[in-house]
Design a protein around this nucleic acid. Sequence first.
DNA 1: TTTATACTACTTGTATACAAGTATACTTAT
DNA 2: ATAAGTATACTTGTATACAAGTAGTATAAA
Lengths: 238, 238
Amino acid sequence: MSDLLYPIKWLSKASAGDRVAHELRMRIISGKIESGTVLSENKLAADFSVSRSPVRDALKVLASERIIRLERMGAVVVGLSKQDIQEIYDVRLLIETFVFERIVKMDRKDLVRELSKVLEMMKIAVKYKDADEFSYQDVLFHETIIRSIDHGYVSMMWQNLKPVMESFILLSMRQRIEDDIEDFDRILENHALYIEAIETGDRKRMIASLHQNFDDVQEVEDLWKSQQLMTKGVEPHD
Amino acid sequence: MSDLLYPIKWLSKASAGDRVAHELRMRIISGKIESGTVLSENKLAADFSVSRSPVRDALKVLASERIIRLERMGAVVVGLSKQDIQEIYDVRLLIETFVFERIVKMDRKDLVRELSKVLEMMKIAVKYKDADEFSYQDVLFHETIIRSIDHGYVSMMWQNLKPVMESFILLSMRQRIEDDIEDFDRILENHALYIEAIETGDRKRMIASLHQNFDDVQEVEDLWKSQQLMTKGVEPHD
DNA sequence: TTTATACTACTTGTATACAAGTATACTTAT
DNA sequence: ATAAGTATACTTGTATACAAGTAGTATAAA
């Protein structure tokens, strides 16, 4: 088994099943395991040096995220297309605009303070060129916003979306921290704008900030580059 | 083990894990298993006469739906509160309004035809006082709308929501077919209005039809009644 | 009576075993 | 050479076994 794509430190207390799920997700989204590949529970168990039980758990999770398809014989890798990424953004936009409408009716002081903290963390991460830490804080930023309205089913939707988003952002940021380090300033600025929008309850500014993120196709390009990079060194997964 | 709440005929090709998940979900949402109860994998396996494996699968599914909470020792039943049901409607409204915006930009002829068919089925179900069939068609109606825009991640959100919705609607309709059979006319009319809104692309009418559904708290009352009914005959699940 | 320790009866997560089903390849008969 | 049937090497779903850990209880000591 080759080295891991998912940060080991994020898995400190995770079960074997979780580890397999996270690592497999990264390999699929990065393109290291190509779309169309048929995964076998037994082969995966051998690859990861675990039994079939945790592998089965992992495959169920990945199937619910639609990056694999469970069929009669074997799990077929689907992966993430550009359209998928667009769709993820659709849903994120959908969720976050809903959340914003709730937020503006609440006391937002604590939230703004919390988000400011996360933003500072992101700045430090950029300073030390730590793509993984940056990704973590980026995801946390949006999760903090979403969870602030205390809506069980919206949180649920986020939980379903999060793992794929996280992997995708991780890969994208790792790529970008090599190619476009100065681009992170723009991302940081965008997040600052988001905080301002929440603070002032300015719906327009919030939408603008969101779209500025979403219209930025850079991340898609990053992922594509990353996939090219990966598939070069891929072992033929017959 | 007492008799089943979930229609057996809907489980013809389902695995043992699916059966357990569906039945357990019904018992939890109906209140037959009360909130706070701690479920044990071994006890459940014995109750359903299966091994722990399918029970584990089922518990994972129910946990992702947030009707139970997986803890260190045992799975704690959470159940559905009135707020949860309100939240489900929030999300359904969110999804369906998004879907509608896409639909009005498409050719809607086939969709309208398909929906009309489902609506006729619903009418027959009412005629024969078949609450289960009615529920099935009702869920199918909304699923047909949502899947028509061919959006993977929106479909995913629906898939995550569907099982709980389905159970909830089933219980509510079974209650209502006893108490308020004439009320089904109003529901049918509402669905007809929905189809019209799609056909004409009339956003306002669609929103109206949606709200008419959502503002109707009857379903919540039905569920509550159903729960009262159930908890009377509940065996103390120490 | 209170505190500490050890024991019992649970729990989960993982590994392994087995039954039933399916696709591929290889016979064998025509 | 081709078609039909059969063997085999896979697959999944379920059952069972085992290790590690946790709550609660009972017993022992102060």
